[in-house]
Each structure stands twice: as C-alpha cells, then as structure tokens.
Design a protein around this nucleic acid. Structure first.
Lengths: 195, 195
DNA sequence: ACCGTTCCGATGCGATTGCATCGATTCAAC
DNA sequence: GTTGAATCGATGCAATCGCATCGGAACGGT
C-alpha cells in the first residue's frame, strides 16, 4: 500500500471548497480546477476522490444538508429545558439561515436548489433533508401548540423559512425584517388553536 | 436603411428562447449559440440585439417578471366583482406558480433567483418585482381583512408563496399539497384579526 | 441606376471546461 | 532491499464558451 490518505476527510475538505466557491459566484463558478486550488490539493486528488463533477456536487450537497440539520438539532439540544415553543422558534430561525454567519450556507443552499430543479440526483438529496426537517417541525408543533393539523403548520413554516431566506439573499428583505416576519408568524401559531 | 427589423419583438423572441432553455437545463444551459438556435435566428442577430450575455439575461428576467405581474393583474381584473378575499386568493395562487402550465415559469424564476444571489444586475430587477407584488398584496390584505399589520401579512404571504414554489420544484411537495397549504394559510388570515 | 447605411450569417480566436492519461513518488509486504 | 499496488501532481485533449470580426445581402435616399 502507498501512502494512505483519509479519503473521507479529504472529501469533506473538497466539499468545503465547493461551498466557498458556490458562495462567491454560484455553482457555475465551481470548476474542478478552482475547487482543487481552493482546497489546496491537486486536480488529480479531486478526480480520485470523485469520479465525476456531479458526484462531487452530490457529496457537497449532502455535506451541507448534514451540517444544517446538525446545527438545528444542536440548537435544540442546547436548550432542552425550555418549552417546545421556544425550541420551535430556535429551530425555524436556524433553518431560515438569517444570521450573518449563515449567509454563506444560505447562498450555497440556493445555488444547489436551483441546480436541483434540473438534476434528479440533487433534488433527491434535498427531498430527504426537507422531509427530515418537516418531520422535526411537525413533532415540535404538535408538542408546542394545539394546532389541529401540525403537518400543515410544519409545511407552512418550512416554506415560509425558505422563502424568507431567498428574499434576504435577493435583498428584498433585510435579515431583521425577515426575522420579524418569522416571529410574527410563530406568534400567531401560538394564539391560533385552529393552526 | 437596410431591411428594418422590429428589434423589440426580436428581443422578446430571444428572451422566450432563453426561458425555454433555462427551463430545460437551468441558466447554465443558456449559451449564445443555443439561444440563437432555439430562437431560430443567427448568433449574429443575438449579438446585435444584446451586446453581452448578461444584457440578454437582464432583458429576459425583466420579460419574465412583466409576464408574471401581468398575469396576476389580469387574473384580478378578470374577477373584479368578487370580494377582496377571493382576489387575494387568486393573486397568491398565481404568484406561487403552482399550476402545471406555470411550471416552466417557476423553473425559470428559480434559475434567475439563484443567479441573482451573485449578480447585482439581476437582483435589482427581482427586487423591483417583489416590491411591486408586496405592495399589491398589502393593498389586497388591508381591504380583505382586519389585519393590524397588512405589510407583515403581505411579506409572509409572498415568502410563503415563493417557498411553496421552490418545494414543488424540488419535489418535496406536490402542487396539490402546496395549494392546500396556501389555502390553509389564507383561511387563517380571514379568521385572525390580529394577523 | 447608383451608392451608402444598416443588418445579417458565418467564421475565427483565446480562454476555459470536464475528463483522461501518464510518469514519479510513496509506503506496506515480504 | 526489493517489489508492487496505491496515490500523487502535471499535462494533454476535445469540446465549448463568450465575444470580435468580416464580407455580402438588403434596402432607402438621390
């Protein structure tokens, strides 16, 4: 055997480079050469880790999805003593990616979503992530409110969070405005038992 | 003068080709050659109409925005006798682009939104369109409901519609499911005077 | 009828793309 | 110490990209 490299960590390293480039100039700015340069590896290394560019993108999207999900669940685990209502507020705020330090992830997410509209491989990954988040939201809502249909409320909240993220990225709303809209929606969720 | 051509109609014809290609394979599938072929003109004609590719994309996005806005207002003008509530329902349904025949426009919209996140020229156009739609929604909501803050409700509805469009394109929701979520949200808007 | 302006279609060009290939290098096995 | 599989960095290649250029066709003015 030759020098053994940790393939998995290298793949993550490359995925990180993909995210950086996608954040700066969209997925169209993600070329194998630029990825290799950003990850500070050779192009050959990138090609050995991923047979094709699409395989690399699929891994990167999975990586991002896992990171976002992990951050949401970590946020929930970080405040377990509080009520389910505050937990839901935290979770949806995390998903909306409104904070400044999450702007990069938001741009990367949007780039992948657009590509997924014409790439079955990517849309499948996104579906998995959205299904998990919807399930989480549904659970939290049924615990936190008397909503008659938690799943509808969860779908609404998830779509609203995504739409707000998009509007912030476009510049139609400021992060504070989006956060206020989200808080307002959550507030109505508490008071409205027919939710 | 040589043979005079209607520049404006040709530009629209080219913009239509851009939309078709963007629908099929995203904005990355929009090349000058493919656009020319799809519009059934020569590449030279495309280059005379638009000095650069970005100028072409800007025009195409403006074209799409105008068409969507026109369709929304036409839908409103088509049912003027009804209540402001049904008008708002129609408007938001149109904006959400949930119908099968609007799927193309939805995909094109998503492709442009993603590109706009890294292109100031495109994001400016989108901001204009969103501002107009938000204004329309705000007006309809203040007429239709007793909401204390129509602007918040309008922002919520607009973001929700966009998020639902995205989720349908990804395949996370079916068009019927998205429509049901939208209707559910509108229904709560009527019953909730604190909206 | 001639000419000049305007538009058209085609071709060329440099840069860049994803991917394949190829020695050189590295390290475990024996 | 030798061997050989595994990995490295580098380069080649065909295709494609946006854009520039150019000769000829089409028409209005005179």
């Amino acid at each position: 055997m030759p020098r053994q490299v940790d393939h998995e960590s290298r793949r993550r390293q490359i995925a990180e480079a993909v995210c950086q480039l996608a954040d700066e100039s969209g997925l169209e700015g993600v070329t194998l050469r630029d990825v290799a340069a950003r990850a500070e590896v050779s192009m050959g290394a990138v090609q050995r880790c991923f047979r094709t560019k699409e395989e690399m993108l699929v891994f990167a999207l999975t990586h991002v999805g896992e990171r976002i999900t992990a951050r949401v669940t970590a946020r929930l685990a970080g405040s377990p003593a509080q009520s389910a209502r505050t937990a839901l507020g935290h979770a949806s705020t995390e998903v909306a990616l409104l904070q400044q330090e999450q702007r990069t992830e938001a741009r990367v997410w949007l780039a992948f979503v657009a590509q997924a509209a014409v790439s079955p491989a990517l849309s499948g990954i996104l579906r998995t992530n959205y299904a998990a988040l919807q399930g989480l939201f549904t659970r939290l809502i049924s615990e936190a409110t008397a909503a008659t249909d938690p799943e509808y409320a969860a779908r609404t909240l998830l779509a609203l969070a995504d739409g707000l993220t998009t509007h912030v990225l476009i510049g139609h709303l400021s992060p504070d405005e989006a956060l206020a809209v989200l808080d307002c929606h959550l507030g109505r969720l508490w008071d409205e038992p027919t939710g």
